[in-house]
Amino acid sequence: MRIALLSDIHANTEALTACLRHAGEHGAQRFAFLGDFVGYGADPGGVVDIVIRYAAEGAVALKGNHDQAVEKSAGYFNEAALAAIEWARQTLSDEQKRFLASLPLVARDGTVCYVHASAASPERWDYIDSPSAAKRCAEAAKSLYTFCGHVHDQLLYFEDANGRMCEFRPTPGTPIPVRSRRRWVAIVGSVGQPRDRNPAAAYTLFDRGREQLTFYRVPYDAMVAADRIRKCGLPESLACRVELGI
């Protein structure tokens, strides 16, 4: 069973479509959308519609902090992010907004836990930015595999013989054996707004039977996504980020 893990799509339909096609070609049978479907990008409605369609067929869909900001106030967002949230509020239909509001923060499936930020107090939107943060997350998740987004760079944390968490930066496209005798926390990468100076969309494929995790980078036409951001009057900085992957 191969599960595609997609997070931080940020209203980028072009990137999402490219990742879904790639995952389909690589045998994905299940899908988990780990939140932040809106914000930053031009097409919140398009992305939410795709997620609604997949969720109706059994896909996991979780709420991210940007999705929550559509219904609640978002005091801690910067100006560009606020402009994009405002754009999402204007363009999303009531049905789409109801869908976002109904999403859970955490989902579990046997040995796997899905969450947008950290399984330790998911509502606080803490970043997993260190081995100790990953350790807190794994302990709260109480599962062997925890898959998260929120941080946009792909990263894998694993527990060593002494129970300490170690950090590993994966090479895209290499299947990594992730055996079930230790705990793993994977940051699956951002589909719609990567920030490592590589504009290619990021997502991860989990092969449950083989216990393998493959981090992928999928090239797509980021210029089109950036142009759409400009055309709908959102700040230029958001277009640049998508175009350059910064």
Binding site: D160, I176, P177
Partner: peptide, 10 residues
């Protein structure tokens, strides 16, 4: 080279 080093920290 492209797998996590399970003994890195031990």
């Amino acid at each position: 080279a492209r797998y996590p080093d399970l003994l890195a920290e031990s």
